[in-house]
C-alpha cells in the first residue's frame, strides 16, 4: 500500500482556506423538537430516537457522537430527509421538514442537503468529475464541478474512475459531490469510517475547512469521540436520547488532534 506517499502529495495540494466564523450568530438554523422515531417489529416497538431536541446554528461544525445503536443514523436519516419522524418537528432554515410529503422531501434532499456516505457511494461507472456532475445535474444553483474537485484536491484526477482512486480520494469525490450542490446542510455519516487514520484526518480537515471557508453547516456523525474537540457543537446521543450537548468556543484544528 502506498497510500502514505500519495497522501503527502494530497495534503500539500490542499489550498489554504481562510477562517470565516460566527457571522450567523445564535439563530437556530436547524432545530429538532421532540423528534421521535419508533420502528415496529411485529409486536415490539423500538424507539430508535426518543424525544430528541437540539438546535444548530448556521455555519457550525457539528459532531454527533454516540455508541453503535444509539440512534445517530436515525437522526441523520431524519435530518437528511431520508426518513420521516414518527413524532416531533424538524425545522431547517425556517421550513418545517416534518410536514413535507415524499416529493417535497426529495426536493429537500435535492436542494438543501449534501450527503457524505461512509462508503462513498460513488457511481462506479462515472469518473470523479461525472460523479460530481451527477449531483449537479439535478439542482438549481450548483457550483462548478471542476472547481469543487480542485478545491477538494482532486484537480488532477478528474477523469479517474472510482476504482482507480484510493479510499480517501473517493471520499473527497463524495464530499465534492455533496458540496457542489451548494447545500444548506452537509451531512456526513461516519466519513472516516472506512478510511485509515491519516486519510481520515485529511478528510475531516477538508470538512472543517469547508465549514470555515464557505460557512457551510456541517454535521458529522461518528462514534469516534476523539474528534470532538474540533467541533463547534458536540452532541452526545445515547439510547436514542441526547445525553449531553456542549458548544466549543475554541475548536481546535484537526491537525492538533491525535487518536
Amino acid at each position: 500500500m502506498n497510500i502514505g506517499i500519495r497522501l503527502g502529495r494530497i495534503l500539500v495540494s490542499v489550498p489554504f482556506l481562510t477562517y470565516v466564523s460566527g457571522e450567523y450568530g445564535m439563530e437556530e438554523f436547524v432545530k429538532l423538537q421532540n423528534i421521535t422515531k419508533i420502528y415496529k417489529m411485529g409486536e415490539v416497538e423500538i424507539r430508535a430516537v426518543d424525544n430528541i431536541s437540539f438546535s444548530i446554528q448556521k455555519g457550525e461544525f457539528v459532531v454527533i457522537v454516540g455508541p453503535s445503536g444509539a440512534g445517530k443514523t436515525t437522526v441523520l436519516n431524519i435530518l437528511g430527509g431520508m426518513d420521516t419522524a414518527t413524532g416531533g418537528a424538524l425545522v431547517v432554515d425556517g421550513e418545517d421538514v416534518t410536514a413535507y410529503n415524499a416529493r417535497q422531501l426529495t426536493g429537500y434532499r435535492r436542494e438543501d442537503i449534501g450527503f457524505v456516505f461512509q462508503f462513498y457511494n460513488l457511481v462506479p461507472n462515472l469518473t470523479a468529475l461525472e460523479n460530481v456532475e451527477l449531483a449537479l445535474q439535478i439542482c438549481k444553483d450548483p457550483l462548478d464541478a471542476r472547481e469543487v474537485l480542485k478545491e477538494v484536491g482532486l484537480g488532477s484526477r478528474l477523469d479517474n474512475f472510482p476504482a482507480q482512486l484510493s479510499g480517501g480520494e473517493q471520499q473527497r469525490v463524495s464530499i465534492a459531490r455533496a458540496l457542489a450542490k451548494n447545500p444548506k446542510l452537509l451531512l456526513c455519516d461516519e466519513p472516516t469510517g472506512a478510511l485509515d487514520y491519516n486519510t481520515g484526518k485529511a478528510i475531516l480537515k477538508l470538512l472543517q475547512n469547508m465549514c470555515r471557508e464557505r460557512g457551510m453547516t456541517v454535521i458529522v456523525i461518528t462514534h469516534n469521540q476523539a474528534i470532538a474537540p474540533m467541533a463547534d457543537r458536540l452532541i452526545h446521543i445515547k439510547n436514542g436520547q441526547v445525553s449531553q450537548m456542549e458548544t466549543n468556543e475554541h475548536p481546535v484544528s484537526i491537525d492538533e488532534i491525535e487518536w
Binding site: 426529495t106 426536493g107 436542494e111 449531483a135
Partner: peptide
C-alpha cells in the same frame, strides 16, 4: 438508493 439520497425523484 444513493441517487435517491442525492435527491433524484422516483
Amino acid at each position: 438508493a444513493t441517487l435517491k439520497v442525492l435527491g433524484f425523484y422516483n
